[in-house]
Computed example of a mutant assay.
Amino acid sequence: MSHHPYSTFRTTVARISRLSPSFTRITLEGDDLQHFGTDGLDQRIKLIIPLADGTVTDVGQLDASLSMGEWYRRWRELPDELRNPIRTYTIRSPRPVDREIDVDFALHGTDGPASAWATGAEVGDPLLVVGPDARAEEPAGGIEWKPGAATSVLIAGDETAAPAICSIVESLPEHTTGEVCVEVPTEADALPLTAPDGVRVTWLARGGAAHGVRLSAAVHEWGRQRSAAAGVAELAEPDPDEVLWEVPDAVTGGEYAWLAGEAGTITALRRHLVRDLGIDRRSIAFMGYWRQGRAEGS
């Protein structure tokens, strides 16, 4: 039997660990996770959030004969009251041998379906996870961290990118140098993270500042130290038609930047790196995970 690159895995909550005021780690277990295919890093997955009554509408997502695209079309055709929210997350730690995965949630109240689910989750709760299947012959994709031979890195993002950033940093070779900037809601949200000696990690507590201001300032400061280019500027207003997600196919230079988080902040930072600092756009991966004031489009 052939397998699709992405499969839907039945899981249940095995453990819940509060990491900080804003972060909760939920460990999911399930027999099918032995086939979960990923090396971690910034591997994207989809979570199918139960409806208010705890149900999940059957659109064939557990039918191994259907591709994700096929059942996803059925999902899109459902009436709102039957359409389970689907949200994108990144794996914090996969352990196929143990049939477990860790997913870290940045909690922001109960208005959003994923944060609401994580806030109220209990051991034993079911959750469907759409992720790469190791049995598939075709690669699933979903990993954008592709530094090539680069040995100097800039990694920047907000709390939604923190799980991916932590996984990436822990994978860096010891000879890597660079800067890691993570904007989080409070000082208490700085998570333990082991990095190579040549990589500086800075957790930026937002406090009362607007989202993205501290991250932008930190990246501009990195730019000043790197080259004496432009000083800190006001955060540019994003172009509504601007590309919000772009990753290079191959990096040929020794420098690589990975930016992820709120789309307006991330696109403005990418413009700064390219236009002001002269960094080759082919050496920059940037991902607008979400946009201020808008719900994620599933």
Rank of each mutant, 00 (worst) to 15 (best):
8 T>R: 11
14 A>P: 04
15 R>P: 05
17 S>H: 15
24 T>C: 15
26 I>A: 04
27 T>W: 10
31 D>Q: 15
34 Q>W: 12
41 L>R: 05
42 D>R: 02
47 L>H: 10
57 T>Q: 10
57 T>S: 14
61 Q>G: 06
62 L>V: 09
63 D>V: 13
64 A>F: 09
64 A>V: 15
65 S>A: 15
66 L>C: 13
67 S>N: 05
68 M>I: 13
68 M>C: 10
72 Y>Q: 10
73 R>I: 11
74 R>K: 12
74 R>Y: 10
74 R>Q: 14
75 W>I: 08
81 E>V: 15
84 N>S: 02
86 I>M: 14
89 Y>K: 04
89 Y>L: 08
90 T>L: 06
91 I>A: 03
92 R>A: 14
92 R>E: 13
93 S>G: 08
95 R>C: 04
100 E>C: 14
103 V>K: 06
107 L>S: 03
108 H>A: 03
111 D>Q: 14
113 P>E: 10
123 V>M: 12
125 D>E: 03
131 G>R: 01
132 P>R: 06
134 A>P: 11
135 R>Q: 13
141 G>F: 03
142 G>M: 01
146 K>I: 07
146 K>W: 00
149 A>R: 12
151 T>I: 07
152 S>D: 14
153 V>T: 07
157 G>H: 04
165 I>N: 00
165 I>P: 02
166 C>Y: 14
169 V>R: 07
171 S>I: 10
174 E>C: 04
182 V>C: 09
183 E>V: 02
184 V>M: 02
186 T>E: 15
189 D>W: 01
194 T>G: 00
196 P>W: 02
200 R>I: 13
202 T>D: 10
203 W>H: 03
206 R>N: 00
208 G>F: 01
210 A>N: 08
213 V>S: 12
213 V>H: 05
217 A>E: 10
219 V>Q: 02
219 V>W: 00
226 R>D: 11
230 A>G: 07
235 L>C: 02
238 P>E: 02
242 E>F: 15
243 V>R: 13
244 L>S: 15
248 P>Q: 06
251 V>F: 04
252 T>F: 00
253 G>L: 04
257 A>G: 00
265 T>H: 03
265 T>D: 05
270 R>Y: 09
273 L>Q: 01
277 L>G: 00
283 S>N: 11
283 S>P: 01
284 I>L: 06
285 A>S: 15
285 A>Y: 01
288 G>I: 08
290 W>T: 08
293 G>T: 02
295 A>S: 13
296 E>L: 12
